[in-house]
């Protein structure tokens, strides 16, 4: 298992490497640049900006500089001579400058927001799991009963309602009409009520998703022979469900949890946008429109790493839940 884990973790490196090359070339291939504005900057200013940010180099040199700390273009890397921005590169833990937030490095931006985003994602994840799984279980146990229809109804709504619709609805109803929560909280760190609506908004889809998978999986498990065996032993209804069914039913559900967690941790863009959550999710989409190359790269790498790690976690969790799976 240990060797397996190390191997898997090491595998993430080439994956990220490939992702970074693809993203880097794509993003430079797309027309437009960080300095395109409706009110255009004079060409000389754009030239100066390109020089300052080393955008005047060939793309592969820019990539090497981004990976760093390989000193390829000495001139460009001496800040004192030409006052260009010099940064250590990814390998030195330096994600470079932001092309939009001029006062700040990408490291600053990420450091500021990532914990808020991760916290939001984790809270939503936990909520999704502790609501979604029981919902699915109950629906399956009361198959074709009122709880099943209710849960199915909730699932369909959760899946069919886009997150932004749900977010706006929650905002309009609970913040604006009822005034229970502030529409823009300014104290995310100190006021727990700030998190309520965004966490719920972000959880609706995953709850529905998890509930649906759990229900289907539970129904499937109900028909399994080993469940009949458990009944034939006289095991109580509740224990049959808890001891014999849920664990088996969760195996397929776990498969979706990894990507879901990665999605929640990195993909809360809309929710962050609507509820003014000071996380990094907002940057994920805006940076692309703004051609904020540094932020685009950072977000992509974070997202890719999150997915890779979550998949690894899922595989490990798999082995934990399903004894038939062993890694070596």
């Amino acid at each position: 298992m240990g060797a397996y884990l190390i191997r898997r973790v090491l595998w993430i490196i080439p994956v990220l490497f490939v992702v970074s090359i693809i993203t880097f070339s794509l993003m430079h291939a797309v027309p437009g640049g960080p300095w395109s504005k409706e009110k255009k900057l004079p060409p000389s200013v754009i030239e100066h900006l390109d020089q300052k940010y080393n955008l005047d180099e060939p793309v592969f040199i820019q990539y090497l500089n981004w990976v760093g700390p390989l000193q390829f273009d000495e001139g460009a890397l001496q800040r004192d001579e030409a006052d260009n921005l010099v940064f250590g590169g990814l390998l030195a833990g330096d994600l470079g400058p932001s092309y939009k937030y001029l006062d700040r490095s990408v490291n600053d931006i990420v450091a500021d927001g990532i914990w808020v985003t991760v916290q939001l994602g984790l809270m939503s994840f936990i909520l999704s799991v502790i609501v979604g799984i029981p919902l699915g279980v109950i629906a399956a146990l009361r198959h074709n009963g009122i709880p099943d229809y209710a849960a199915t109804f909730v699932s369909i709504i959760g899946i069919a309602t886009p997150t932004f619709v749900a977010s706006i609805l929650l905002l309009v109803v609970f913040s604006i009409a009822l005034g229970w929560f502030q529409p823009n909280s300014l104290d995310w760190r100190t006021d727990p009520s700030s998190w309520v609506l965004p966490v719920i908004a972000l959880s609706l889809f995953p709850i529905a998703q998890i509930a649906r998978y759990t229900r289907a999986s539970m129904l499937e498990v109900t028909r399994r022979d080993y469940v009949r065996t458990a009944h034939s032993k006289g095991v109580k209804e509740g224990s049959v469900v808890v001891v014999h069914m849920i664990r088996n039913a969760l195996i397929p559900v776990v498969t979706i949890l990894g990507p879901l967690l990665a999605f929640l941790i990195t993909g809360s863009f809309i929710t962050e946008f609507i509820f003014s959550v000071p996380g990094i999710g907002r940057y994920y989409v805006t940076s692309i429109g703004q051609r904020d190359y540094g932020v685009i790269m950072a977000m992509t790498m974070l997202y890719a790493a999150a997915i890779a790690i979550m998949n690894l976690v899922v595989d490990v969790l798999y082995a934990y839940i399903d004894p038939r799976i062993r890694y070596s």
């Binding site: 905002l171 823009n184 509820f275 003014s276």
Partner: peptide, 16 residues
């Protein structure tokens, strides 16, 4: 100075 990205949320904040 708040930083409310969503215009609808911004109007909501005004209304509350």
């Amino acid at each position: 100075m708040a930083m409310i990205a969503d215009p609808a949320a911004s109007l909501g904040a005004y209304e509350t």
